[in-house]
Computed example of a mutant assay.
Amino acid sequence: MDDTASDHRREQGKRMSDPHEAAGNDDLGSSPSRIDNPELRFEAQRAFVWTLVVGAVILAIYISQSLLVIFGAMVFAAMIDGGARLLGRVLPLSRMWLVLIVIGATAGFFYWLAMYAGSQISREAAALPTIVQAQINAGIAWLQTQGFDVSQTDLQGIAGNLMSGVGTVTRAIGGLLGGLSTIFLIAIIGIYVAMEPQLYERSVAWMLPRHRRAEFFETASRMGYTMRRLMAGRLVGMVFEGVFTWIMLALYGVPMAALLAILTGLLAFIPNLGALIAGGLMVMVGFSGGTDMGIYTIIVYFLVQTFDGYVIIPLIAKKTVDLAPAMVLASQLIMGILFGILGLFLADPLLAMIKVALERRAERNEEAYQAMMSEGS
Rank of each mutant, 00 (worst) to 15 (best):
N161G: 10
V204F: 09
G224Q: 09
E215C: 02
Y369M: 13
D7Q: 14
V300I: 10
S181Y: 09
V75H: 01
T291C: 02
M231T: 13
G88L: 01
A187K: 12
A159K: 09
N365L: 11
T106S: 07
D36R: 15
A352T: 04
I183T: 07
S181T: 09
L143D: 05
L113W: 02
L180G: 08
R360W: 11
V356M: 07
A105D: 01
L344A: 07
A362Y: 06
A22H: 09
M163A: 12
L199H: 09
Q305H: 07
F345Q: 00
V102K: 06
A60V: 12
E363V: 05
S122H: 05
L40R: 11
P314C: 00
A352Y: 10
K318M: 10
T4Q: 14
A56L: 13
G274R: 02
S374E: 13
V90C: 06
W246V: 00
V193T: 07
A214F: 06
A194W: 07
S374K: 12
V90P: 14
L185C: 09
Y225L: 07
F240K: 02
T4F: 11
L208Q: 04
G343L: 00
F110M: 01
S181M: 08
S151D: 15
L251E: 03
A22T: 01
S119E: 12
D292M: 12
M115T: 14
V321M: 15
N137G: 11
E196L: 06
I188S: 08
E375S: 09
G174Y: 09
I247L: 09
S181I: 04
I189E: 04
G336D: 03
T130F: 11
V193S: 02
R212K: 14
G108W: 01
I298D: 00
G82K: 10
A159L: 15
F48K: 08
E218I: 04
Q65V: 10
V69N: 08
H211W: 08
D322C: 02
N37R: 04
G224S: 15
V99T: 11
A84K: 08
D308H: 06
S377P: 01
D292I: 11
A5N: 06
F269K: 06
D7S: 07
G88V: 03
N161Y: 07
L323H: 10
G174S: 12
A368M: 11
V321Q: 10
D26F: 14
A261P: 04
L273R: 03
L235A: 13
A187L: 12
T170Q: 15
A107L: 14
Q135P: 05
L263F: 12
R364E: 14
M248R: 00
R222N: 11
L100G: 06
K355L: 12
